[in-house]
Nucleic acid binder design. Structure first.
Lengths: 336, 336
DNA sequence: GAAAAGGTCGCAAACGTTTACAGGATGGCC
DNA sequence: GGCCATCCTGTAAACGTTTGCGACCTTTTC
């Protein structure tokens, strides 16, 4: 239980513990013979450096706080995977916090992370209000926002080009012969405004009339999409394709369509956004717009590292390109 | 950037910093008037206690290391969600590490976690070899294994009753009229041996002959199950139901069946194990055996807390009950 | 009214490192 | 042989807390 300290191996080696510290840190201020002797001794005695003591003096913990609304969400867990791998590769460890659905908890965990002396924070915001919610802390520690566009907010973030995502998606539908495309889902966060905008822009170029079906859908869940789609399918269907603002919503649409015996893609084409892993499942095979989660995570930690290690100030926005993933839920109307 | 310390507020309050520390810690060794004055002052000055300094003297970090093969896996991310929530509710934070597929990395992260001075480790092992892989560390820090049965190993763990899970699953199939049930998938870890045993036990009671189809499937992935199932469906089908050792495998079977135009559940019934969230998706609706992930996570952190806070020694095994989730992939043969 | 008891608070040590500074030894150079 | 530079190592301070101990003051008790 009692772990061995620098002092212990110093005594065993017959040197001061400063020397041991130097041997381990790879300082060149030490004879190579003693260095090797000490390193071997550390190995034998099972010494591992105590990070908290080190942090005490270096004032750096090598910790990155990762706060996500909830890690049991495919999108976030993928992000978390790549973020952790990348961070650890650069000598950082991840402290994970779920911020849940309410702002109070989000604020609490961020405060907690500060107490923990993390070197930086990576946060995927739970709502548009997140920004002002944690405003008081973001200037105390390097912070980068993940996956949400903050638009004109003075914050650093990395996100996909959401507008372009819906743009290429509706263009694809157009190429397939669709002329009546319904946009389904959320619109009231910055990200979703952009997605709606991309759709509108494509419609204008293609001389289509944009059409929306949405309510105050606060979270992009399958059940939320399902209930909303049930309302939708109670009315006559005078469109040939649905662009869902989110894969989760699309999955809900799929379920409601199956309930209503509406054939997808036979009668109705469907396209989503995010490319969460469920979309690739057999019998689902949802056509969707991919967010490059791996790149996003890696770039986010790079951005954060830059702030931490180089003290880079200012707000940088990293926008990544989305790609279209063609699967089986869109029908080509040109082929009779 | 420069955060305010105990000393700062002590100076402002005109007391020694020991007094401030006591005011915050809720010690009764202090006048209630000064306590309130100090607490208000701390609030105004924005003081938050520095956990690393505290850890230095208390020799407790309030950190729990969570190591999972990979967090971008539905089963583990659900586990992680509940573990983090529960841990934080008890004053602990989670340090997340992916151990990846190879043992070397697993060992590395555990060592790292020790260096980080975590109070305890929660680990879902990546393979049966994990136990001996990290044996050297598990007696240096409280450790509990999650989701994997270690059987006679001297380690604490929480897991479902895997044997009972397959037992109730095959009994269910029997009740539905199935007499030829094929067990599909992994068998070579302790957990999967138990699952196979439960199946065999049920077969014996019901006077069925157990039948297996599996190879050296090392990981329970969808694609692994898919490829294996392709082999299977190349041969004649002389059974009416498949019990897949894992939901992921079951999903692979589903895909292969669709490819081969084998109707599920019309021609073949299918049941899985784990109840990962994908199984509830529209068009999938896989009947499966649920691992109570929430309870498992909560019990695991409780167990760990007991070891940490009470210094409880010895190895305790917590076995939770699985439940059957009836969905749409099993056909009732009794109904003509 | 004095002693005991109890309540508040300050002093200082300790936790395990890193690192600036100083000191000692060694070697080279003239 | 003396001096300087170089190389190596030790000393000690510092990081921000917690906490045992002792000191002081107030109150109680006989």
């Amino acid at each position: 239980m009692k772990s061995v300290t620098l002092k212990d191996v110093a005594k065993a080696a017959g040197v001061s513990y400063a020397t041991v510290s130097r041997a381990l840190s790879g300082s060149h201020q030490i004879g190579s013979d003693t260095r090797e002797r000490i390193i071997k001794l550390c190995d034998e005695m099972g010494y591992t450096t105590n990070y908290v003591a080190r942090s005490m003096v270096t004032k750096r913990t090598g910790l990155i706080g990762l706060v996500v609304p909830s890690i049991d969400n495919q999108f976030m867990s993928e992000l978390a995977y790549y973020a952790e791998m990348s961070a650890r590769g650069h000598g950082y460890n991840i402290m994970l916090c779920n911020s849940g659905p309410d702002l109070k908890q989000e604020k609490t965990v961020v405060k907690l992370l500060l107490s923990r002396q993390v070197d930086g924070i990576l946060i995927v915001p739970q709502s548009p209000k997140t920004y002002e919610n944690i405003r008081a802390f973001t200037d105390q520690v390097p912070t980068v926002f993940l996956s949400e566009n903050l638009r004109d907010q003075p914050q650093s973030y990395v996100a996909v080009d959401n507008s372009r995502g819906t743009y290429i998606g509706t263009k694809y539908l157009y190429e397939l012969g669709h002329r009546d495309i319904l946009y389904f889902g959320r619109r009231h966060t910055a990200t979703h405004q952009l997605r709606a905008e991309g759709y509108i822009r494509a419609c204008q170029e293609l001389e289509l009339t944009p059409r929306f079906f949405n309510s105050e859908l606060s979270r992009s869940s399958i059940t939320g999409g399902y209930q909303l789609a049930k309302e939708l399918f109670a009315k006559p269907i005078d469109y040939t394709a649905i662009f869902a603002s989110t894969d989760s919503n699309a999955l809900g649409v799929l379920k409601a369509a199956d309930d209503a015996r509406i054939d997808i893609p036979g009668r109705l084409s469907l396209i989503g956004f995010d490319n969460i892993s469920s979309t690739a499942l057999p019998r689902i095979e949802l056509t969707t717009v991919e967010q490059p989660k791996r790149d996003m995570a890696i770039q986010a930690v790079d951005m954060l590292r830059d702030k931490i290690e180089n003290g880079t100030q200012g707000y940088v926005h990293q926008i990544l390109m989305p790609t279209l993933i063609k699967r089986s839920t869109c029908r080509n109307l040109n082929e009779a």
